[in-house]
């Protein structure tokens, strides 16, 4: 099959180019990452991020045939005869398939991704009923691979002001946490024209999430929390 990969070396190239590779999958190679790593074995200038190679770490998020996904859990069979691989759209490219995720993590940190409770520290742990814990299902599983945020047109236009789907999913993860006491400040922080409300319910985020999570639903829940508070 034919694999076309975006190549860019800031020390040699003034702009990116596509490089074509011919490669036939071996029987033991099931996932796209296996092929990319074999190509890297032959041409070690090819640069990408990967770590766990089983969809847990979120390092190898790339754009595969126009759609963001994790190379390590994308079956070769699903690709057909040709695969076009590009770095995550909307993020500055550092080299080849590696992008600069500084802005993405800045937005993530801005929603205070930790339980805030100004009260006295409990003797042991902060307890939570099984029912309250269940409300975090579908939220805590996010691996911050940025597939969703990088597919979001609203984020492309305002990456410095709009939190983006991954950050908002995490914002709701802490709004929904029974142990968190910072609900008011969290909601105040999101209630402006940019941080939450740039979302235009395009739903690319939910469509591409490799962990099958639904950032668009979390965003809707935050809007409802804001509405309930106001009405």
């Amino acid at each position: 099959m034919k694999i076309s990969i975006f190549r860019y070396d800031p020390e040699r190239d003034s702009e990116g180019r596509m490089q074509d590779y011919e490669i036939e999958p071996e029987p033991h190679e099931a996932m796209l990452l296996d092929l990319i790593l074999r190509l890297k074995g032959e041409d070690d200038t090819l640069t990408l991020r990967r770590s766990c190679r089983e969809g847990v770490c979120g390092s190898d998020a790339i754009n595969i045939n126009g759609r963001n996904g994790l190379a390590c859990i994308t079956p070769i069979r699903a690709l057909g005869e040709r695969a076009v691989l590009r770095p995550l759209p909307g993020f500055p490219v550092i080299r080849d398939l590696v992008v600069d995720m500084t802005q993405f993590f800045k937005q993530y940190v801005s929603i205070k991704p930790y339980v805030v409770d100004p009260g006295p520290m409990p003797d042991k742990e902060r307890r939570q009923s099984p029912q309250a814990r269940e409300r975090l299902d579908g939220l805590y599983e996010c691996i911050l691979c940025a597939c969703c945020t990088s597919m979001c047109p609203s984020y492309w236009w305002n990456p410095d002001k709009f939190v983006g789907p991954a950050g908002l999913l995490q914002a709701y993860r802490f709004l929904a946490d029974s142990r968190d006491r910072d609900t008011k400040a969290r909601l105040d922080d999101l209630d402006d024209v940019y941080r939450l409300f740039r979302c235009r319910t395009i739903m690319n985020c939910t469509e591409v999430c490799p962990k099958a999570l639904a950032p668009s639903r979390a965003i809707e829940r935050i809007r409802l929390m804001l509405a309930e508070r106001a009405l």
Binding site: D191, V193, F197, L226, A230
Partner: peptide, 13 residues
Amino acid sequence: MRSVLTGLRAWLV
């Protein structure tokens, strides 16, 4: 400064 029609209010309107 916050405008009158922003955030949640604009969305609800």
